[in-house]
Computed example of a mutant assay.
Amino acid sequence: MLVTGVVRGCEDPSPDASPVTVAADAAAADAKAGNAAEGSAAGPRRSNAIELPPLTVRSEAPAPTPAPGTPASRPAPAAQQAGAQRATALALPPSQAKKLAIPAITVESPVMGLGLDGHGRLTAPPVNNPRIVGWYRNGPSPGERGTALVVGHRDTRTGPAIFLNLNALKPGDKVDVVRADRRTAVFTVDKVRTYKKEDFPDAEVYGHTGRPELRLLTCGGSFDKKSGYAANVVVFAHLTDVRQV
């Protein structure tokens, strides 16, 4: 089943907000209430949209194979191949994501499941709870083979939000996702990119590479009061360890 919607989220923020340290323990009831309030709106609000491109690529299916002769089709280095094999060997069964931690930017957040709204778009965490992130529950769970998607606000009208400093992550940084089965899926950041909305590489971001991967997404780029952010920040990471909680 293909998803044909955009992610809703970042609310008219101040792009010059100061860095924030977030340690969230918001109750699930608050998240549910906030999400219900968003879903009851008569229609989408421009000021409340992360506006990721449609999820038209199956995150659980293999990404398109590059044409012969292109750089992406060349054999991967031995270290990269070994990493891919290890990630595949560590792959976990499906289980709900419950908590996200990113030590490098001092982030701890509960995770709520996200689905599609009445307009066919992937919903975002409620703007009245900027310290919570959302996982696309109809795709792979973090640690499962496939590409798990996690989105969060950069900031809102009330100030900084959970993913304000997402673009500060670097290759080698760790992302921990605690799952309902009491396992922690540990991901290692491969790269961080900022894409203009018109140049967003759907297949690269959403597609399945054959191993358990994670994408963290939020707003980015320049900000305009009328149209919002011009780009999206995307963190690419892959599974490198599994811990028992």
Rank of each mutant, 00 (worst) to 15 (best):
T184V: 14
A72W: 08
P201F: 10
A27T: 12
G9A: 07
G118E: 01
D199T: 11
E51M: 13
D202E: 14
D30L: 14
A185I: 06
P142I: 05
S73W: 05
A231D: 14
D176Q: 10
Q85H: 08
P201R: 09
A231L: 02
P15S: 08
V186C: 09
T184D: 03
L239R: 02
L52S: 13
A33K: 15
A63R: 14
V205K: 00
T123H: 07
A180Y: 03
A26H: 06
V127I: 13
H153I: 03
R179S: 05
A63Q: 11
T56P: 02
N138K: 12
R243V: 08
A67M: 12
S14H: 12
G134H: 02
Y195A: 06
T65R: 15
V3H: 14
L164S: 05
A185V: 06
V192H: 02
A28H: 08
G115A: 13
P140S: 11
A78L: 11
L2P: 15
L100S: 00
P160A: 09
A230D: 15
P15Y: 05
S141R: 03
D224T: 10
F187M: 03
P54E: 12
T70I: 05
G207M: 02
R86Y: 00
E60I: 08
V7T: 15
T218W: 00
R243W: 10
H238R: 13
K196N: 14
A104L: 00
V205Y: 03
L216E: 03
T70H: 07
L90A: 02
F200W: 10
R154P: 00
R131G: 15
G220I: 06
S47K: 11
V20D: 03
N128I: 11
P19T: 06
T218H: 00
F200S: 04
A104T: 07
Y229G: 01
R58C: 13
T70Q: 09
K98C: 07
L122N: 09
G139V: 03
G69Q: 04
L239Q: 00
P201K: 09
V150R: 00
H119V: 13
P77A: 10
G152R: 02
R121E: 13
K226H: 12
F223R: 07
R215T: 01
I162H: 02
L217S: 06
N138S: 14
P53G: 14
G228E: 13
A67C: 03
D241P: 01
A41R: 15
A185G: 07
L55A: 12
A17S: 15
P130W: 01
D176H: 14
A82P: 01
R58L: 13
G118K: 13
Q244M: 12
P54Q: 09
P13D: 08
T240R: 10
A91G: 06
K196F: 12
P160C: 07
M1C: 11
V7Y: 04
E198P: 04
A91L: 01
R157G: 11
L90E: 03
C10G: 11
N138V: 09
V6F: 14
V22N: 05
V177G: 01
R131S: 14
P66E: 02
S47T: 12
